[in-house]
């Protein structure tokens, strides 16, 4: 009973994220240690980028002498604006780090407007 309840009420934390933009691409780097490729779910739903990763619960057999790691799953959501191409999202999972590459739409790449002085 307790175990069942524990499974349902498992906590969720935000993965540590780095976001940068370079060469028409937006690159997200999310640290999700303990999440394998198969336990990861990345989707776009109604202008929202949803990233969810499940990981094994920490070992409950035995006595904890030090407990610093969070016994929780990972989840984070981002809103996307119209400049992001929904059909061109690349995701690579390596060593517990998710690398997401979002491409900016060709048409919405900013055109530089020259500012003149009179």
């Amino acid at each position: 009973m307790a175990k069942e309840l524990e499974g349902k009420t498992r906590r969720v934390v935000s993965p540590v994220a780095d976001i940068c933009e370079a060469g028409g691409k937006v690159i997200l780097r999310l640290e999700m240690p303990g999440v394998s490729k198969d336990d990861l779910d990345v989707k776009i739903e109604n202008d929202e980028l949803i990233i969810e990763g499940k990981r094994e619960p920490t070992d409950s057999k035995g006595r904890f002498i030090i407990r610093e790691r969070r016994n929780a799953d990972f989840a984070r959501r981002y809103t996307l604006d119209d400049t992001i191409d929904r059909d061109k999202v690349e995701a690579v999972m390596k060593n517990g780090v998710l690398h997401l590459t979002l491409h900016l739409k060709e048409a919405s790449k900013p055109k530089k407007i020259e500012v003149k002085t009179k």
């Binding site: 920490t58 070992d59 057999k61 006595r63 002498i65 610093e68």
Partner: peptide, 9 residues
């Protein structure tokens, strides 16, 4: 880095 240290039998 965060660590856990667990002792079992």
């Amino acid at each position: 880095p965060a660590i856990d240290l667990v002792e079992n039998d």
